[in-house]
Nucleic acid binder design. Structure first.
Ligand SMILES: [Zn+2]
Ligand SMILES: [Zn+2]
Ligand SMILES: [Zn+2]
Ligand SMILES: [Zn+2]
Lengths: 159, 159
DNA sequence: GCTCCAGTTGAGACAGTATCTCAATTTAGA
DNA sequence: TCTAAATTGAGATACTGTCTCAACTGGAGC
């Protein structure tokens, strides 16, 4: 896991970005949290570890990491944004369960290609895109079905 | 344009939603603004027209119109959400120019189908999705090119 | 038209995410 | 070590959007 830290440190060095204690903590925290995390998750991680990093610095550093291409920001609109490490990961999009918050990644090169194609047709130069599918994950669907079976009186109330 | 107003009014009636003066103003404003508008645009439209509708009511009514299916909300994350009338319009997605704010719509059924396919494979029940492509529109790209030509000294500074 | 009340409104408080300010501190290079 | 410039932290601030609650009103019923 943390074997990626030196590479990330080097990336910052190469960009002339100073390696403060806070940024080291944040790099480590990012790798520890992994997956998809938000600012609060990172901050509570720091609190548990007794690491001192202010909220402002966390926001600033995450923005910096996004800028240098180490992190990807997933903008969810109303909810707090999520972040995920990019290094060595294939470009993917997300399905987000509105019940349990589960995040499922998917890769669909044909969708990516079609987006390029659409842009080409319009003379539009794409820089970034967001594709999120909101819905109910398999587990939550199964749970719903089980509850309806054990409580038939409510079986019709969900629609 | 405003010929759609009676139909929208009827939709509210059918749902038992009261037709207040404010809601009439908002329906009219929605049709006047048309295209893709945000809350501020609607509010300034009302100011210009001397129409009194509070911010809270605008937010509330827009949410209501989304709920009854007359309006679609486009969640842009950091920016204020956009709204667009749905009636009679084909489902589409948006390209958004980060320079001039221009919004270009596109329809790509194959992308929609692939999303369904991806969900099916994961046992994920899709309820909603967002697909926005951010980039530079054709007009802005041309403008950039023209400026580089007339100001060759800066030709290399953009990358 | 009049009455009545549940639904609606408005002003401003409030919630939540994220950025900004600026004095104090720290990094990194000479 | 010394210094300039970058960075940090605490709190203010910006901004979108929702909530509170007293006052108001649409529209059904008479
Ligand atoms: Zn779920
Ligand atoms: Zn992901
Ligand atoms: Zn443009
Ligand atoms: Zn549109």
């Amino acid at each position: 896991m943390s074997s990626r830290l030196p590479a990330m440190v080097q990336t910052l060095r190469d960009r002339g970005i100073r390696l403060t204690a806070e940024r080291r903590s944040i790099l480590a925290g990012v790798l520890t949290c992994g997956g998809h995390f938000d600012v609060d998750r990172l901050l509570s991680h720091f609190r548990h570890q007794g690491v001192q990093v202010s909220r402002a610095t966390v926001y600033r550093s995450l923005n910096t990491l996004v800028e240098v291409g180490l992190l990807r920001k997933i903008d969810l609109g109303d909810r707090p944004s999520l972040y995920e490490p990019i290094e060595g990961r294939e470009h993917h999009e997300h399905m987000i369960c509105v019940r349990c918050g589960e995040i499922i990644e998917f890769v669909e090169p044909e969708i990516e290609r079609l987006q390029q194609e659409v842009c080409r047709r319009s003379g539009f130069e794409p820089l970034d895109h967001t594709l999120q599918i909101y819905g109910v994950c398999h587990a939550c669907n199964c749970k719903d079905a089980a509850e309806e079976c054990s409580d038939p009186a409510r079986a019709g109330a969900g629609g």
